[in-house]
Design a protein around this nucleic acid. Structure first.
Lengths: 231, 231
DNA sequence: ATGTAGATGTCGGGA
DNA sequence: TCCCGACGTCTACAT
């Protein structure tokens, strides 16, 4: 990812035609060639941008542009359409490059969050004698949904999904690997809990010594939700 | 505008609950306090963000977090709702601050509107003997871009787009259906005019008995625009 | 302030 | 791949 802060102007042609007058802005060039042009306010939407797949090429300004003070011209061309973004750079205030690597991406906890609450409140669904240690137990690679103790005092890490698939088992495996390095917690047992667990995920979990727990959302709500107990 | 590149994890609670596992990302803090969290790919949408009005406060990590390697905790709180974004920063790779000033903002060049003006002024591009009835001819379902008469006195409805795609043909079809119910106008012929017409749209138009007209914007401006006639 | 339609919408899922 | 619907939609404009 390349970060440039510069006085610049820009033109965009594609679904519409538009231009940006001269001002100081942040230019972000991502690893996939996409470009964002941000001002110091507004929302998360850039003033102007080019989505991937696209290619960015920097060129010397022509004589006329150079005379106006342009130091570089960036052309960002979309690869599948004729969308094109041209940026004239004037004074460059900042220019740096960073290797960010791949991003695991956002994890949305919608129904998942509710399942987590319910299971935390009904922790004995894990087995008689279980007790809750903590929800969203923080680790360096993200929060473990539920940490609990079983009847024998052993630690249990629970990963909760709406639909239990292979990647959820992988996630729990990573957590277990990390948690088991902590002598205060080890040995940590894993429980993969979901409303529905795919056969492949169940097989993989079994292979990893991870228990599977199918959660009955409605039944759990029925126990916990006052609205469902009115009768 | 503050730019930080750092390994970080984040949690968002508000309309939904979500979290970002540990990874290296770009953090942008804008002058209005809004915060963007970008990965090195994807489109212009950040992985996570907080829109203004909001306040960002940085704090020391608690003991437990510090033990995990957290060097700072940012809390971004929306001012009108209980939306909240919490960011744990680990290794900070880059941190810089820049004064960008106010931005004049994006100027959209209404090419479609301009094309309509130009075609109205050069209505014979539809064919010899055509005359303009009206621009923005109002109907119950919206304005028809141009209504004209051909050499034989027949009515012609023109839909103008910069890029001619299927939905434009559908739109014109709806207008034609409506206009053809009017005995004073019927039969009404349709013309789909655009700078560029996609093959699918051309096929659909043909199927509906709608003529296609490719507009040469530069040539039309050359005829009409005094700035281009100076020589 | 509030509701509604458009967006360079973006993004994900299913056929 | 295209099509369709949801979105932390956002945004401007109308009332």
């Amino acid at each position: 990812m390349r970060l440039v802060v510069a006085r610049c102007s820009a033109r965009y042609t594609g679904r519409l035609t538009a231009h940006l007058p001269l001002a100081t802005r942040l230019l972000v060039v991502k690893a996939d060639g996409s470009v964002l042009l941000h001002s110091d306010g507004g929302s998360y939407k850039p003033l102007n941008w080019m989505s991937p797949p696209c290619t960015m090429s920097a060129a010397e300004p022509d004589e006329e542009s150079a005379a106006r003070g342009v130091t570089a011209v960036w052309t960002v061309q979309h690869q599948k359409s004729d969308d094109r973004l041209e940026i004239d750079l004037y004074d460059v205030v900042h220019d740096s490059d960073h290797d960010l690597g791949v991003d695991p991406g956002l994890v949305k906890d919608g129904v998942e969050a509710h399942l987590q609450e319910l299971l935390a409140a009904q922790i004995e669904l894990l087995g008689t004698g279980h007790s809750l240690v903590r929800r969203e137990y923080m680790t360096a690679i993200g929060p473990v949904d539920i940490l609990a103790r079983d009847a024998d005092g052993g630690t249990v890490a629970v990963e909760i999904k709406r639909r239990g698939e292979i990647d959820g088992v992988e996630q729990l495996t990573r957590y277990l690997e990390l948690l088991n390095r902590d002598p205060l917690l080890s040995p940590v047992r894993g429980v993969f809990a979901a409303q529905e667990i795919k056969p492949q995920a169940r097989v993989l979990a079994g292979d990893r010594g991870i228990d599977c727990l199918v959660l009955d959302y409605d039944a759990m709500r029925g126990v916990d939700d006052p609205d469902s107990r009115l009768f």
